[in-house]
């Protein structure tokens, strides 16, 4: 028997100049691509029916992202691969679906479930002891220290060092929420003091928590 509906969770990127689109603009763009692709999205009942597509927490305007997530409900059967192929034909390289999976278990909404996000800052001209100083500065900072779950420096090559930060997007216990834009301002000031150049930054991944472990939203469906 053909299933009446298919639920798919997909991950997409939002990069280059398209990082300047707001959340609502991105949603409109994806809904229109879904329509063009001839994917029969389900609509909510009622006076003002809306397509049943839900998104993860808005990424700040201007921040590129390698990991946006969305859940869609489709009438009839459709494989995740087919979905990905069809929607990507209707999208540009700046917004593309990387991976799609059928939702086979009961899941919470993306907005409710995602608890952490990781960000990557590409740094240049970093001196030997600067990493430690920065780490120290951040971990003792009254505003940001409790909003960060993890912070690492990773040497990419002799020129570039990545700073990877995982911040909270949800209050779990004693933590606070990681405010990307506020942090960026502070971090730019910090790195300026150390003579470091922030070359690039983007959102890397989003996570849910399962029994104390970090999982990506696609790992749990």
């Amino acid at each position: 028997m053909m299933p009446e509906e298919t639920k798919i969770r997909f991950k997409f990127i939002k990069i280059k100049e398209f990082k300047y689109l707001s959340h609502l603009e991105t949603v409109r763009l994806i809904v229109m691509a879904v329509n063009r692709a001839g994917i029969n999205v389900k609509y909510s009942e009622g006076f003002n029916p809306n397509p049943r597509i839900n998104f993860s927490f808005p990424v700040p305007v201007g921040l590129a992202s390698m990991a946006e997530y969305s859940d869609i409900e489709i009438t009839g059967d459709m494989s995740a691969e087919d979905f990905k192929g069809r929607i990507n034909q209707q999208l540009k390289e700046q917004i593309r679906v990387l991976e799609a999976k059928k939702i086979l278990t009961k899941v919470l909404s993306l907005m409710g479930d995602i608890a952490l996000c990781s960000y990557c800052y590409k740094l240049k001209d970093i001196k030997k002891d600067a990493g430690g100083k920065i780490k120290n500065g951040i971990s003792t900072h009254p505003e940001f220290s409790r909003s960060i779950y993890k912070l690492d420096f990773n040497e990419i090559n002799s020129l570039i060092v990545n700073l990877n930060i995982i911040g909270y997007t949800k209050v779990l216990e004693n933590n606070t929420i990681f405010k990307f834009n506020d942090f960026l301002k502070y971090f730019k000031y910090l790195s300026n003091n150390e003579g470091i150049m922030v070359k690039d930054y983007f959102k890397e991944e989003a996570y849910v928590l399962r029994e104390g472990n970090l999982k990506t939203p696609l790992e749990i469906v």
């Binding site: 100049e17 398209f18 300047y20 689109l21 707001s22 603009e25 763009l29 229109m32 691509a33 063009r36 305007v61 201007g62 209707q90 999208l91 540009k92 700046q94």
Partner: peptide
Amino acid sequence: SFEDFEKVLEGVLKPGRYIGNEF
């Protein structure tokens, strides 16, 4: 250049107006 484009967009309210590259 893209670099200068990003510079002039700083603090602009609806930068999506200027990016082009639509479908």
